[in-house]
Amino acid sequence: MSPSTDLRAHFDATVEFNNGGGLTATGFRLDLPNRGADVAQLFVKHLGLALVKEVTLSNLAIVEEQHRGSRGVAGPRTRTGRFVELSHVIRDGLVTYPGLPAPVITPHLTREASKASYAPGTEFAMDIITMIGNTGTYLDSPFHRYEGGTDLAGLTLETLVDQPAEVFHVHDSTTRGIDAPIFWDRDLANKAVLIHTGWDAQFGTPEYGSNAPYLTEAGARYLVEQGVTMVGIDSVNIDNTAPDAAGARPAHTLLLAAGVHVVEHLTNLGELPPSGATFSAVPPRVEAFGTFPVRAYARL
């Protein structure tokens, strides 16, 4: 199902409690399973409110908008088993991270030249790719940040394949830094956390490297404390790379120290539901190497 067919309610709310007191919400947004859903009931369920006496809604509007993972609302109606591609295509000359070298693809054996070595009608192409590990959509292992950390060859498939995914759709965030409270509403233990910022729309352009969204230090620390297996983002870096960061990389530092894999330059995260998909990102087993492209994908 296309994300644009999801429904959400925008409203203001006033809550009275049976034992006194109240709660006011302005500009609240909530996932809806259908247009006839009881918004007040879903609001109470989403917040986990007890002893509610009355809920009054105002300025209610129901709009087509991607679900964000409201509690009490079932996941999207998708065809089970569908795969979603989350990797960028690697090609000769591709600029992934501004300032790093682009891959160079050259022939080792052309199809024409191979005809001399094989039977008539049989030909092959063998090519050489020269590239930095930080190319396309790639995974960082602890070795990338720490001498003596686990390298690509040491990663276990149990932490790379079919990880239950929690997707946080923050593409309309008003701030660049993705902070810890964004993640408070879900159980994240032993799951992959994928941060959908929408910045992948800038991939391959000069704008991609400037003023990009990132995970804050507090956000990274919280994810480590929750016991996540992987953290992925569709931005130029999981850390703030702007000059005001002064070269600090707290998200890499905290996540990789805890053995949490980092996947950067994802794409198409907007096609995923907040919960219910699995995520896989597997690099080749290269010794004494910390970062390498992956074929990242989700299974719905």
Rank of each mutant, 00 (worst) to 15 (best):
T78F: 11
H88P: 02
G81Y: 00
A288V: 12
Q41S: 09
T56G: 09
P250L: 14
P243A: 13
T150C: 02
Q66C: 11
P33I: 00
G36P: 00
A251R: 06
P107S: 01
T137W: 02
E147Q: 09
V63R: 06
Y208S: 10
P250Y: 10
T174L: 10
V52H: 06
I90P: 01
L155H: 01
T106I: 04
G72D: 05
A277I: 06
R145K: 08
A189R: 12
N19C: 03
A258D: 14
A201N: 04
A277W: 07
F17M: 04
V231F: 08
N18I: 02
P164H: 07
T106W: 00
P293Q: 12
R111S: 02
Y214G: 11
K53Q: 03
G69V: 00
I62S: 13
V224K: 11
D6Y: 13
V170S: 10
V282K: 15
P213I: 03
T205Q: 14
T197D: 13
V193R: 00
L30H: 01
H144G: 01
Q41L: 03
T267P: 09
I238H: 12
T150E: 15
P164K: 13
I195A: 00
T130I: 08
E207Q: 12
E264C: 07
Y297L: 01
T96M: 11
P213G: 14
G259A: 06
L139S: 13
P250T: 14
H10E: 08
S280H: 12
A153D: 12
S280D: 14
P76D: 13
T197I: 02
V170I: 04
L57N: 08
A298Q: 01
R29T: 14
I238M: 10
R249Y: 05
D6Q: 15
T216R: 10
T150A: 07
R145Y: 12
A242H: 15
R285S: 04
E85A: 14
G27N: 05
A281S: 15
A258I: 00
F203N: 12
E207N: 02
F289P: 06
A37E: 05
L272R: 00
I128C: 05
E217S: 03
H169D: 09
P181Q: 15
I238Q: 03
E207M: 11
L30I: 07
N19D: 05
G259L: 02
R91D: 04
W184E: 15
L23V: 10
G75E: 08
F11D: 03
A189T: 14
D127R: 01
A116M: 04
H10G: 03
Y214L: 09
M230T: 09
L223Q: 10
I62V: 11
R145A: 14
S210V: 01
T267H: 13
G99S: 06
Y138C: 12
L109I: 09
